[in-house]
């Protein structure tokens, strides 16, 4: 029967490191994924007619930027300064506020025009 203390160390070694380092994937992979995500969001925001989908596109673009921040933080030589992580944390908070206000605006517009089609909500008069 193994000694419990030794066993505890064993457990720690096994369970702690489950989230593995991905050192084999170079940084530019992440950057390309992020660029693709940004482009998808941009394309959606520019081409779809529905206001909510446009908002979703904007959220995707914001998330693409967040991914960039985290990737650069992870691969930076000065990772002890957690600036990238902090930036994303604040960006997530702002995105939540943005989504709430944006959707409230869409609902208000819908009440007025009875539509969420962006092509029809183009007049500047109420």
């Amino acid at each position: 029967m193994p000694h419990p203390r030794r066993f505890r160390a064993f457990l720690k070694s096994n369970d702690r490191g489950d989230i593995t380092d991905m050192t084999s994937v170079p940084l530019h992979y992440y950057l390309v994924v992020s660029a693709a995500l940004f482009a998808i969001g941009l394309a959606g925001a520019l081409t779809r007619r529905n206001a909510i989908i446009a908002l979703i596109g904007i959220e995707l673009m914001l998330n693409a930027a967040n991914l960039n921040f985290i990737a650069f933080w992870r691969y930076s030589p000065k990772a002890e300064a957690v600036t990238g992580v902090m930036f994303v944390l604040f960006s997530i908070g702002i995105a939540a506020a943005e989504a709430a206000v944006g959707l409230a605006l869409i609902i208000a517009i819908y009440r007025h025009y009875r539509t969420t089609n962006l092509d029809e909500i183009s007049s500047m008069k109420g």
């Binding site: 066993f7 064993f10 096994n14």
Partner: peptide, 29 residues
């Protein structure tokens, strides 16, 4: 008392020990 308290932990450790090293983390999970 500690052996009874840790019986499942010890059992898991024993079972994991029966497997080749490459499998151990998988079996542990």
């Amino acid at each position: 008392v500690e052996a009874i308290d840790q019986i499942f932990v010890i059992a898991k450790h024993w079972v994991v020990g029966q497997f080749p090293a490459a499998w151990q983390s998988f079996v542990s999970v």
